[in-house]
Amino acid sequence: MVVTAQLLAAVVLTLTLVWVLHFRGGVSWEKTSSPRLVYTAHPLFMVIGLVICTGEAVMAYRIVLGPREAKKAVHLLLHLVSLAFAAVGLYAAIKFHHDAGLPNFHSLHSWLGITTIALYALQVSALPLPGV
């Protein structure tokens, strides 16, 4: 089951990278380039964070060999990395809107996304620390 999940995650990441690099023209943080290139970082980082890293964090107890404390540490670390990727993805969306002169947080998608990241951060903050 773990191998199947990791293969599907690899497929999702590959398809996202193909879409971002080939069909959307890549990623850029520069304002002088097309604002569309700034926006493409949003789905890329959200997929890496909330799909790939979170999926690996959920499976950490089955994947990581060693004592329970090591498994807990990897689980926590992957959740923190996931949250960091999601924060960069959120920043990309806000930067795109700012650079393009569009209002932020005006759609259901944006409100659900903010709520999801806030609840995820709240959940991660409640994780027990290794050794505790």
Results as ranks from 00 to 15, higher is better:
residue 6 Q to G: 00
residue 11 V to E: 05
residue 12 V to R: 03
residue 12 V to H: 00
residue 14 T to C: 13
residue 15 L to Q: 11
residue 16 T to E: 11
residue 21 L to Y: 12
residue 22 H to D: 12
residue 26 G to K: 03
residue 26 G to T: 02
residue 28 S to H: 01
residue 29 W to G: 08
residue 29 W to H: 10
residue 32 T to R: 09
residue 34 S to R: 07
residue 38 V to M: 11
residue 39 Y to M: 14
residue 40 T to A: 14
residue 41 A to N: 01
residue 46 M to Q: 14
residue 46 M to C: 11
residue 51 V to N: 04
residue 52 I to D: 15
residue 55 G to Y: 14
residue 55 G to K: 04
residue 56 E to W: 10
residue 56 E to S: 04
residue 57 A to L: 04
residue 57 A to R: 00
residue 58 V to L: 13
residue 58 V to F: 11
residue 59 M to R: 01
residue 61 Y to T: 05
residue 62 R to I: 15
residue 62 R to Y: 15
residue 62 R to Q: 15
residue 63 I to L: 07
residue 66 G to I: 04
residue 67 P to G: 12
residue 69 E to N: 09
residue 73 A to S: 07
residue 74 V to Q: 15
residue 74 V to A: 15
residue 77 L to S: 11
residue 77 L to M: 13
residue 80 L to K: 15
residue 81 V to Y: 10
residue 81 V to Q: 06
residue 82 S to P: 12
residue 83 L to Q: 09
residue 84 A to Q: 08
residue 84 A to L: 12
residue 86 A to W: 08
residue 87 A to I: 13
residue 87 A to R: 03
residue 88 V to C: 02
residue 89 G to V: 00
residue 90 L to Q: 05
residue 90 L to Y: 13
residue 91 Y to D: 11
residue 91 Y to R: 03
residue 93 A to W: 09
residue 93 A to P: 03
residue 97 H to W: 02
residue 102 L to C: 03
residue 104 N to T: 10
residue 105 F to W: 13
residue 107 S to D: 06
residue 108 L to H: 11
residue 108 L to A: 11
residue 109 H to R: 14
residue 109 H to S: 08
residue 110 S to P: 05
residue 111 W to E: 12
residue 111 W to V: 13
residue 113 G to D: 10
residue 115 T to V: 03
residue 118 A to R: 00
residue 120 Y to N: 05
residue 122 L to S: 07
residue 124 V to N: 10
residue 125 S to E: 06
residue 131 G to N: 14
